[in-house]
């Protein structure tokens, strides 16, 4: 860093390091919000029609008053600015269909999806690590490759059905659908976790292979380390940055996957909210979910950015 900020070098350095990322994150959220706004206004048809349903026989007068209330008669730029203001205050308007604030609709359904996603991540990590660490011999590697391939290539709505057939209908270990508590969560979470575990296992294995080909592993082996010590002290850490890079992608695919899983297993959650909203063209809800997804993505990426330097000291630019 330059000498001018030497006095406050640490804080200043941290600021110059993270400020661009913070700005970048805000740009992504702003972009998402703008996109949502454009979509809301590009959608063919009158929003009021969509709101009231096609068969509605409400008089033109009432429609006009609704337009006024929603600000739809104002110039587009003014609407946009007002909309941005609402977004900043987490006001996403009211659901056309449920006649409730969008925030309340999503908020009420958030917990089941978070539970599902959290258990899925745990499953995915455990399965991926198990496969990656077991694949040491040539035969085990071939088997691991096959398992990964099947896990990645099978659509969740199919593996979910298979798991249901076997574990719910035949063995009756888990409830068929709905239900509360952990037992009802296991199959959906496992279904959601499988493709992610496949990808994660590949990435970890690739990372371990890459690390194992590095000269420092020769040094470590020449110091008398066992394989477990090599993993724990050296290679696993080298394999983790690519896996961490996947974090945002994984959380994204959890969100997307939740739409299918919740439908398949008849679970409540924001995936269900999303599907209902799309089927009913409940656009304020759809757009709030779009912004929600962008925020989640941005937050995960900020965390990842903070994690990298902890894993790899070469990325700590400040000293």
């Amino acid at each position: 860093m330059s000498t001018a900020v030497a006095g406050t070098s640490r804080a200043g350095a941290a600021l110059t390091l993270y400020l661009p990322r913070l700005v970048g994150a805000l740009i992504v959220i702003w972009g998402a919000a703008t996109l949502a706004f454009l979509v809301l206004h590009l959608v063919p048809g009158d929003p009021v029609d969509i709101m009231l349903g096609v068969q509605s026989t409400v008089s033109e007068q009432v429609r006009e008053s609704i337009r006024d209330e929603l600000g739809l008669n104002q110039p587009i730029l003014q609407q946009y600015l007002a909309y941005l203001g609402h977004v900043v205050t987490l006001d996403f308007g009211r659901s056309y269909r449920l006649q409730q604030p969008v925030t309340a609709v999503i908020g009420a359904q958030l917990l089941p999806t978070v539970q599902l996603a959290a258990l899925s991540i745990v499953f995915a990590l455990v399965i991926a690590l198990a496969i990656a660490l077991a694949a040491r011999t040539r035969v085990a590697r071939a088997i691991a490759t096959l398992i990964e391939l099947i896990a990645i290539s099978s659509p969740t709505f199919w593996t979910g059905l298979l798991l249901l057939t076997v574990f719910s209908f035949q063995l009756r270990w888990f409830p068929v659908s709905g239900g509360q508590g952990l037992p009802a969560l296991v199959l959906p979470a496992l279904t959601l976790a499988l493709p992610i575990a496949g990808i994660l296992s590949q990435v970890i294995r690739h990372g371990l292979d890459g690390a194992n080909a590095q000269p420092f592993v020769d040094s470590a082996r020449a110091r008398g380390l066992t394989f477990a010590e090599q993993l724990g002290r050296h290679t696993l850490r080298h394999a983790s940055p690519p896996a961490v890079t996947l974090a945002a992608y994984i959380v994204g695919s959890l969100l997307g996957g939740a739409v299918i899983i919740e439908q398949l297993f008849g679970r409540p959650g924001i995936g269900r909210v999303a599907l209902d909203a799309i089927n009913n063209r409940d656009l304020p809800v759809v757009m709030a979910l779009v912004i929600f997804a962008a925020v989640v993505f941005v937050v995960i990426n900020l965390i990842v950015d903070l994690l990298y330097p902890l894993i790899d000291p070469r990325l700590r630019r400040t000293r």
Binding site: A222, H234, I311, D312
Partner: peptide
């Protein structure tokens, strides 16, 4: 003991 060629890569860069 073994001393390898290039310490930049023969020492674990993360430790």
């Amino acid at each position: 003991g073994l001393v390898a060629q290039d310490a930049l890569v023969s020492l674990d860069p993360l430790r």
